[in-house]
């Protein structure tokens, strides 16, 4: 019976390890592969830390289990081992973790710099849209097709809500702003998160490796409707993206008076399904 509690304390770490082990198979894991090169590097860092942390977790719990088992065996002895510690061990278990921790932090600086430090952004990256968060939606401003995004709104800019279209296969940048309170631009599948801070414009860049549509959520409490700030990011071919912008322009310029002409047909065509029009 006196082994019950040491077994109890050894049982749960095993459950924890098993739970982590089966999680990917049970779909309790990342929402799919990282769809951006930087996201894949973040995942690699995650797995590297998982290995280190896992070893430490298992190691410390083996140590804890061992001293508990030994301890209950000593229960009837008159006295415990009289020891105030060991200088050698203290040095060992201070220096070793320090080295590992320092390695981990220096090893990761590179990814952080490429993600966030402007001078390390990809050379060719240009802002393609401005995303303004507000309670409780994402407002998106594109430049007119063929033009560059200006810091201030231009008369021929294109506007839409919640659906962000970007071309895949090249780095793109968006300018992130907030119209009211703080929000956070979170695309789990791309492993991107950036707060939208009122009064500040923050550039974020990313590159999607393939076609797809990804969930865009808000990750900073922004009021009662925080949970329903659902947007989507559509990664599509360059030509499709340009086509989308043109359709958006046609839609925006459409004054409702003309007959269903070329622009109307474009809208109808696009709304039938953008992804079937590959190859334009």
């Amino acid at each position: 019976m006196n082994k019950f509690w040491p077994l109890f304390f050894c049982f749960w770490p095993i459950v924890a390890v098993v739970a982590f082990w089966i999680s990917p198979a049970m779909n309790w894991w990342f929402p799919g592969m990282a769809m951006s090169p930087l996201g894949q590097q973040i995942d690699n860092l995650f797995y590297m830390i998982l290995v280190i942390v896992g070893l430490v977790f298992v190691g410390t719990h083996i140590g804890l289990g061992y001293v508990l088992f030994r301890g209950v065996a000593h229960e009837d002895e008159k006295k415990s081992w009289f020891s105030h510690g060991s200088h050698k061990l203290e040095v060992l278990w201070s220096v070793a973790p320090a080295g590992i921790l320092l390695f981990m932090s220096l090893y990761q600086l590179d990814v952080w710099m490429r993600y966030r430090v402007k001078s390390h952004f990809p050379d060719e990256v240009q802002p393609i849209a401005e995303v303004t968060a507000r309670q409780f939606e994402w407002r998106i401003r594109y430049p007119a097709p063929g033009k560059a995004l200006m810091p201030t709104p231009q008369p021929d800019d294109l506007y839409t809500v919640n659906d962000l279209h970007v071309p895949f296969g090249r780095p793109v940048m968006i300018r992130l702003r907030s119209m009211d309170v703080q929000h956070s631009f979170f695309v789990p599948e791309l492993r991107i998160k950036q707060d939208a801070v009122p009064g500040t414009v923050i550039p974020i860049w990313f590159e999607t490796v393939d076609e797809g549509d990804f969930d865009l959520t808000c990750a900073e409490l922004c009021g009662w409707g925080h949970y329903k700030m659902r947007g989507r990011v559509f990664a599509e071919r360059e030509s499709q993206f340009q086509h989308y912008l043109k359709t958006l322009q046609a839609e925006q310029d459409y004054d409702g008076v003309r007959e269903l002409g070329s622009t109307g047909a474009q809208i109808a065509e696009y709304s039938r399904g953008p992804h079937k029009q590959a190859g334009h």
Binding site: P6, V67, H74, W81, G85
Partner: peptide, 26 residues
């Protein structure tokens, strides 16, 4: 922040060291 894990780790090791060789009664 990484470095603050160090004293925390030292404390954990020392607690385990404290139990080591002791009489354990649950």
């Amino acid at each position: 922040t990484m470095m603050i894990a160090l004293p925390s780790a030292v404390k954990v090791f020392n607690w385990i060291g404290t139990i080591w060789g002791g009489k354990v009664r649950f």
